[in-house]
Nucleic acid binder design. Structure first.
Length: 863
RNA sequence: GGGCGCUUAGCUCAGCUGGCUAGAGCACCUCCCUUACAAGGAGGGGGUCGGGGGUUCGAGUCCCUCAGCGCCCACCA
């Protein structure tokens, strides 16, 4: 303890963020000490926010939760490995660059060292208006823009007071990430966990790329049922119901349920598709629902995932008409007659699916194949979560990583990994298990995009000049990261690219989750710093939102299971969402997004953190500026009560001052209980409960305890204010203040650090967390009943004064307390303090079963 | 259709393993410039703890059931 005290006359929250932010940086308060051993370290697999715009209040909310946990662990003496990452890799960045600069990547263009994006992005959102540039130019723009964004993000996080070690920052596109990502992929490939396959896949026609199951979302879309007749030689037509008449040229069969008596006579007979006259069989399959539409459906290649199942299980041919750009293919399927081909190519080829549908409905009408009017409906349609056009299904060669979607053994093993984690809150594990149970395929990781980690393989080119995808060429691990589109594989040179007997590079990049599923490895030094990796992995904590359990959390477990045969962390803390005050999910399109810097400036970081920490783990929470006001009031109170306690008397209480007075000892006993509760709450990752307990004690401490002992602490003559009584009061106040500041430090890092700095050496954030046994040793045998009854009496006196409309300072002639003998005995031990705090001339007691207090105010002196 | 969560004061929410007249903050009303704090402080009104049933000496708290809300997943001809 420093004898020097500098307590300001008028404490203020203004400017604390800037001042302490600089001080913490200068002192390296949050710098990770890598000489510590694994058991001394607490490591965090921080979620890297997507750098494609701005952080929102939801980020502030959840990152604050993690920060409170980390700060607690640090005060418990753990060395915290708390890095920050930026997820700049992937589609969101590409789309932001396209919009920001008005450019798009055209991989066929050569690199132009003098390329400049247009001064003004083109108006509107037509992709054809975007200026085309080479892949390398495009990637340069991605790097440039993300670097700017990342700087702004860091400023916000520093202002919020995240206790991150900023020297540990990574990005998901940097060399370290690309090396880790490619290395892990190569290991997966070598062990047979990664494989390529040519198959129908979900396809986004806007981005022209494949997407995985984890990236899907349903959106309600308008549509219409059309009843369409399929002609039958020598009989009545069969009528199907479809929402996608534009796929009739892709029809390969009709299907009904095997038990459906209406259609049983037609199974394995042929019908003809309307307009095109292609003969297709009628099939039976259990997935056909007799209740839907007319009970018989057309199977197209491919309208939806059920089509894919039918196509596979019924062994049907492919008759594709949808191109990768979302337009109908220029050429009609081979099986079409000349007449059908003419019709297709003159009326439909090249049309978007939307206009093809309009035209084909007209044609069906003219041909008399349409029964009745289309019936409008709205129905859920699958979208890529970041896309704006419905997904189509096209056949393509893609890379996959096994994830249990096809193998029960692996599925069970991954569920078991989930059970190794402590989930906060516990019920979040169900979402993880549900997701795994519902997987219907392996993880599709290849993306036909540019700004991401390349899939690090090449393929051999045969003597005939044909690419042989079965001949997979891989790089040496120490050559990573590689770009197969600009570097040659081992044993080849660039001149052999695309040549017979040479090679071609894989042009696809990996799904962004294929890289971010390796964040523990990336930041932990897996590729080039094994010493660090051994100290931090498996990590202690993965904090994240519940919306990405199926993506980020799950994929990280998959990679760690394969690579390290372990769960990647011990704890998973799952945060809720921020809702706007109407309890709608916040979103930019609704215009209800509040910018974080504005509220941090308005209320102060501690206040916003207070609001965040009030959100229970995993619970969706409404944005509530009222709570920020409360937080601000709490932070100001922390400063004021600290000032009061530290400025009592001209000199600090003597170091050997004993806490002797029953009121002080009672307070300390309650404090010990509080420390116990706050500690076990934090141990259970329940920062909100820790805060609630501490806050509640804190206000009682300020409102009741301080008022009770104030007179004695001042050394007032009429308050039995001998030196020992005063020393006891002041020593207890200082002890409690020191404990309370530390209990609040994880939530309110600025106000507590400020107050701590007035009388203590070093940062509060490196000070030891209060130890309940230590507090008990000081005065833990105090009787809480003493202060409980005293508080109750004081409260009654205040009530009497308030109701009489007089000042709380007003003199009281007499106070009569009626209560049980036990409670009156406790009160007697606090009599001097109660009398002084009440400004009462006398306090007397009477035995009674129920507690009551009579207050007689002194006559008000005139003047 | 399956899973999970929620339903406590006008609003936002605490009430952990069942235990004294159900709490906090905001909002509302009243009073008080008191030497820590007026961008304060002290008090007050306001709740059949979603409905019903059960276990128990005792249920907001445990069990069953119904209803509503939300999220996740499946289906989506």
């Amino acid at each position: 303890m420093s004898p020097e005290r500098s307590v300001p006359d008028k404490p203020s929250l203004e400017g604390l963020e800037a001042r302490w932010g600089e001080e913490w940086e200068r002192e390296g308060t949050y710098r990770f000490d890598r000489t510590k051993t694994r058991d001394q370290i607490y490591s965090v697999d921080t979620p890297p926010p997507t750098v494609s715009g701005s952080l929102h209040v939801g980020h502030v909310f959840s990152f604050t939760h993690t920060d409170t946990i980390v700060r607690y662990q640090r005060m418990r003496g753990r060395e915290c490995f708390y890095p920050m990452g930026w997820d700049d890799n992937g589609v969101p960045t590409e789309r932001r660059v396209e919009n920001f600069y008005g450019v798009r990547c055209d991989p066929s263009l050569p690199y132009d060292p003098d390329f400049r994006p247009p001064a003004e992005p083109p108006k509107g959102n037509r992709r054809d208006d975007l200026v085309r540039c080479s892949r390398r130019n495009f990637i340069d723009l991605c790097f440039g823009l993300t670097a700017e964004d990342e700087q702004a993000f860091e400023e916000l996080w520093r202002h919020l007071g995240l206790s991150v070690d900023w020297s540990l920052t990574y990005t998901t596109i940097n060399d370290q990430s690309r090396r880790a990502s490619q290395r892990a992929f190569l290991h997966n490939l070598a062990r047979g966990e990664a494989y390529q396959s040519e198959a129908p896949t979900l396809w986004d026609v806007r981005f022209e790329m494949a997407v995985s199951q984890a990236e899907l979302e349903d959106r309600e879309q308008p549509g219409a049922y059309h009843q369409v007749a399929f002609g039958r030689d020598g009989g009545d037509p069969l009528v199907i119901d479809t929402t996608r008449p534009e796929l009739i040229p892709a029809c390969v069969a009709l299907v009904a349920h095997p038990d459906d008596e209406r259609y049983q006579p037609f199974f394995e007979t042929q019908v003809r598709t309307p307009l095109f006259g292609v003969p297709v069989p009628v099939k039976a399959h259990r997935l056909a629902d007799p209740e839907k539409g007319t009970g018989i459906a057309m199977i197209c290649t491919f309208g939806d995932t059920t089509d894919v199942t039918w196509w596979r299980e019924l062994d049907l041919p492919v008759r594709a008409v949808v191109g990768r750009n979302g337009r109908l293919l220029p050429d009609a399927p081979h099986e079409f007659t000349d007449e059908a081909t003419d019709l297709y190519e003159s009326e439909l080829a090249g049309k978007t699916l939307f206009s093809a549908k309009e035209r084909i409905v007209e044609l069906l009408g003219e041909a008399g194949a349409l029964r009745g009017e289309p019936r409008k409906i709205t129905h859920p349609v699958k979208f890529y979560e970041k896309g704006d056009k419905p997904l189509e299904i096209v056949t393509s060669r893609q890379w996959y990583i096994r994830n249990g979607g096809r193998e029960d053994d692996l599925r069970q093993a991954l569920i078991a990994r989930g059970k190794e984690l402590d989930w906060h809150p516990g019920y979040m594990r169900a979402r993880y298990e549900d997701w795994i149970e519902g997987l219907n395929g392996d993880w599709l990781i290849s993306r036909q995009r540019y700004f991401g980690v390349p899939i690090p393989v090449w393929y051999g080119v045969g003597p005939d000049g044909e690419v042989d995808h079965d001949t997979v060429l891989v790089p040496d691990e120490d050559a990573l990261p590689v770009d197969p589109t600009s570097e040659a594989p081992p044993g080849f040179d660039e001149g052999q690219r695309g040549q017979p007997g040479g090679f071609v590079g894989e042009a696809d990049i990996m799904d962004t989750w294929a890289t971010s599923s390796l964040t523990p490895q990336i930041v932990g030094g897996w590729v080039d710093d094994d010493d660090l990796f051994q100290r931090v992995f498996p990590m202690d904590l993965r904090p994240q939102g519940h919306d990405i359990i199926r993506t980020w959390l799950f994929s990280t477990v998959v990679r760690s299971h394969f690579e390290h045969d372990t769960a990647p962390w011990r704890h998973a803390a799952v945060s809720g969402w921020i809702l706007d005050p109407d309890r709608k999910k916040m979103s930019k399109s609704k215009g209800n997004v509040v910018t974080p810097m504005a509220i941090l400036d308005q209320y102060g970081s501690d206040a916003v953190r207070y609001w965040s920490a009030n959100g229970r783990p995993g619970t969706d929470t409404a944005l509530d500026e009222g709570q920020m006001k409360v937080g601000r009031r709490l932070a100001i109170k922390v400063l004021n009560v600290s000032k009061f306690v530290l400025k009592l008397g001209d000199t600090p209480p003597p170091p050997d001052a004993r806490i002797t007075h029953p009121v002080d000892r009672a307070m300390i006993a309650r404090l010990a209980t509080l420390v116990d509760q706050a500690t076990s709450a934090f141990e259970g990752y329940d920062y909100a409960r820790a805060l609630e307990r501490t806050e509640s004690f804190f206000w009682w401490f300020c409102d009741d305890h301080v008022e009770l002992v104030k007179g004695r602490a001042y050394g007032n003559e009429d308050a039995a204010g001998d030196a020992a009584g005063s020393d006891s009061a002041r020593a207890a106040l200082e002890e409690a203040l020191g404990v309370l500041l530390r209990l609040l430090a994880p939530i309110l890092p600025y106000a507590t650090e400020e107050a701590w700095s007035w009388w203590r050496e070093g940062s509060i954030h490196r000070a030891p967390w209060p130890d309940p046994t230590e507090v008990v040793m000081d005065a833990g045998d105090g009787d809480p009943l003493v202060t409980e009854v005293a508080s109750a009496v004081l409260s009654e006196v205040r009530k009497a004064k308030t109701e009489a409309g007089v000042s709380l300072r007003a003199d009281v002639e007499s106070v009569v307390v009626r209560d049980t003998p036990e409670r009156l005995a406790a009160l007697a031990r606090a009599a001097d303090d109660v009398q002084d705090a009440a400004k009462a001339a006398s306090v007397s007691t009477e035995d009674d079963d129920t507690f009551s207090v009579s207050v007689v105010l002194a006559p008000v002196a005139e003047g």
